[in-house]
Structures are given as structure tokens and as C-alpha cells.
Amino acid sequence: MKRSWALYAAAVAGYLFLYVPLVIVVVYSFNDSRLNAEWVGFTFDWYRRLFANDEMIQAAVNSLAIAAVASLVSTVLGTMAGFAMHRYRSRLLPVLVLTPIAIPEILMGVSLLLFFVLLNFTLGIVSVTLAHIAFCIGFVAIVVRSRLAGMDESLTEAARDCGATPAQAFRLVTLPLIMPAVIAGALMAFTLSIDDFVITFFTAGAGTQTLPLQIYSMIKISVTPEVNAVSTLLMLLTLVLIVLASKLAPGALRTS
């Protein structure tokens, strides 16, 4: 098909618009200057400072711990939800699973804040994790459900026909076949959790820091290239997780 140069130019401009800002962040993380203004020289200094920053290390540890637990729990619950949405006709479950994804994040953040405070639940790592699980379930469920929808329904029937009980059919046939989607969902949930700012912002309370919260306070107070360094590392982590997930379940990322 003939493609006009205008379409090419516009599309290239689109890709540049998407990537130049991120490249700048990465480049300046190696820049030997306090100002993000012009290139002075190459340095690892900002990374060195990052690893000497105890607060930052603590925030990273918190983020990883939250993401690990949240992704694990939300993968289990999300897989169940995806399976249930595929198999059973239910009105309530899809609404509960999909609405958290469809509405602005801030709404879930403030309503959970209200909820935790009214229950006298101390805000901190636990409340953040509980909140993350709630919004990650939907993403996992969507990925799992779309995999199930693409699966030949008669495979489950064939398992039953061959003498498998419903539980055996799930364990020996359905689960192995949806496993790539489950793992992709888990990686997505991990990424969403480790990157989440808005919901974390409302449910973390004063004393708890995660990487995004730390980045937020740094760019609100004083911008130093340390932010570039931590951003670069975080992007690298995300990149690895997402490429992995997209290898496991092609198309899974698009469904979000």
C-alpha cells in the first residue's frame, strides 16, 4: 500500500514525542552538572549518591516488598476473577473488577483513605499493599479472561470427557494453558504496583515512602539529577518486566 510521506513524518514525530523526554531523563542522569540544562560531562556520581541515600534505599525496599506481595495476591485473585467472568454469567463481578480501572485513580485513592481512617487502620505499607491489590485484580483478570476467551472451549470438555473431574480439568488442562497469561498478569501487576503514585499517595500516610512518593517529594522540593538516576533505574526495571510479559502473552498489554 502506498504511504504518503506526510503520514510517515507525523508518525515519526509521534514516536519522537514519546521517547525524547525519556531519553533526556536518562542522558541527564549521567551528566556531571547539578542543572538539567546542558551536557557538561559524563559521571556515575548521581547513581553513587543514590545508593548512599538511606531514605531512597528504604523507599526502594518498600516499593519492592509492596509490589511483590500485591502482585502475588492480585494474580491469584485476578486469575480467579478472570476465570469466573469467563465461565459464569455474573453481573456484579465484572462491575467490581472493571470499574476500578475505568474511573480516575484519585477516586479510589480518596475512598480508600476514608475507609482506612474510619476503621482506625494505620496507614502504611499494609494499607498501600491492600489498595494495590484492589486495583491490580482487574488488570490480571482482563489478561486471563482474554486468554480464556481465545482458548478452545472443547478442551475443557475433552478433559471431562476423558474422565477428569472439574478440578482435575482445571489443574491439568486449563491452568497450564492460561499460565503464560497468568505470569504476564503477575508481571503487569508488579509493574503497576511499583509505579503507582496516586493511590499510594493517599493510602501511605505520613511515615511511609515508596519510590514514586520519594520522586514526587524530590521534584516538588528540589530537582537534582538524583531523580534522573532513580528514574532511569526504575524505567530499566519496568522495561525488563514489560518485555518479559509481552513475550509471554503477546497482546496482553494491549487489553488494558
Partner: peptide, 9 residues
Amino acid sequence: FQSYALFPH
């Protein structure tokens, strides 16, 4: 089955 329904794994 019409689709054979062989377990692909």
C-alpha cells in the same frame, strides 16, 4: 470433537 480438542501442551 470437531476441533479435535487435543491438549496442546
